[in-house]
């Protein structure tokens, strides 16, 4: 009988722990949103920051974060996809493959500050660019490449072998099969992974402090593209929203530093939430699109019957 009671008690403990963790997340969101309430005001979202007076916005930082995300995805997705294809389709078992896997594992476990420091050596000092947006984007690419490679490789390996064999049997070459048959079938899974990776890219900060810098020039769309003032120039310093929060906390002298940090944090978690929802939505929608309508009609028919 004792063992029954012990069992009941432990079941209770598990429920308590599960509820505790859910409660923790709710608490986080409540705290962030209540302290950063009003983060949607246009003055804050698009306003210029002020170093000395209260009431500044985070416009440039937000633009930098979004632009950094786009540039990073443009670099890292093709590379990750390529490496994933190589590992899934072309790499032969053996020493070389083991070594590549070891490298991926090493890269995945690098602390982000170490990657940032490597970026400082390679993309800031060696190239002579100074602190630039592209340097930051390359540093986060290094951080995300192992994850993206793994996502793409798994997505390709998950495509049923008979689809591939069917395509090859019809006379398609290996590359044609890959591009026209396997990749479309693997796309939903890849998309989900990429969107989740985008969330992580958006939230990265440690690797950016020494690569993209802690400042942003005064942005002006009218400026020449080659001038650091043009927002789309990738060779300009670009402090992102995450770095901004860190800077406000460690050396912020603005009177409303706390409020700006809270509102920025609110923007970040809302973005994370959006990325998560988008990932779910994209995976369902793409799955449905590529699976064709037949399956759903069949299901409807059986439901009706």
């Amino acid at each position: 009988m004792v063992s029954r009671i012990v069992d009941k008690v432990w079941t209770g403990v598990f429920y308590v722990v599960a509820a505790f963790v859910v409660g923790l997340l709710v608490l986080f969101f409540a705290a962030i949103l209540s302290k950063g309430w009003g983060f949607w005001q246009p003055d804050f979202l698009f306003g210029k920051p002020s170093n000395t007076q209260a009431g500044g916005g985070v416009g440039p930082q937000l633009i930098n974060s979004l632009y950094m995300l786009v540039i990073t995805l443009l670099i890292s997705v093709p590379l990750g996809l390529g490496a994933g294809i190589y590992l899934a389709e072309y790499a032969k078992q053996g020493r070389m493959l083991n070594f590549i896997r070891l490298c991926i594992e090493t890269m995945a476990s690098l602390p982000s500050i170490v990657v940032g420091l490597f970026g400082l050596l390679a993309f800031v000092t060696l190239t002579g660019w100074g602190y630039t947006l592209i340097g930051g984007a390359l540093a986060i690419t290094i951080l995300n490449l192992p994850g993206l490679t793994r996502i793409c490789e798994n997505a390709i390996l998950d495509v049923p072998a008979n689809i591939k064999e069917g395509s090859l049997a019809l006379g398609a070459t290996r590359w044609q099969t890959l591009v026209r048959v396997i990749l479309p079938a693997a796309l939903p899974q890849i998309m989900t992974g990429v969107i989740l990776a985008a969330g992580r890219i958006f939230g990265e900060a440690a690797a950016l402090i020494y690569t993209a810098g802690l400042t942003t020039p005064l942005l002006n769309f009218a400026a020449d593209l080659s001038s650091p003032a043009h927002p789309l120039n990738i060779f300009r310093p670009a402090e992102t929203l995450t770095v901004h929060i860190w800077k406000l906390n460690s050396e912020g002298i603005v009177p409303d530093a706390k409020i700006i940090a809270a509102k920025s944090a609110a923007i970040l978690v809302i973005m994370v939430l959006l990325f998560n929802v988008a990932a779910r939505f994209a995976s369902v929608a793409l799955q449905r699109y590529f699976a064709g309508n037949r399956r759903t009609t069949k299901k409807k028919m059986s439901d009706a019957a």
């Binding site: 705290a31 962030i32 992580r200 939230g203 440690a206």
Partner: peptide
């Protein structure tokens, strides 16, 4: 989903919290 969101929260936001 709760754990996925916890992973997604940026580290500076954890620091800020």
């Amino acid at each position: 989903p709760v754990l996925e969101l916890l992973v997604g929260i940026p580290s500076v936001v954890y620091g800020w919290l």
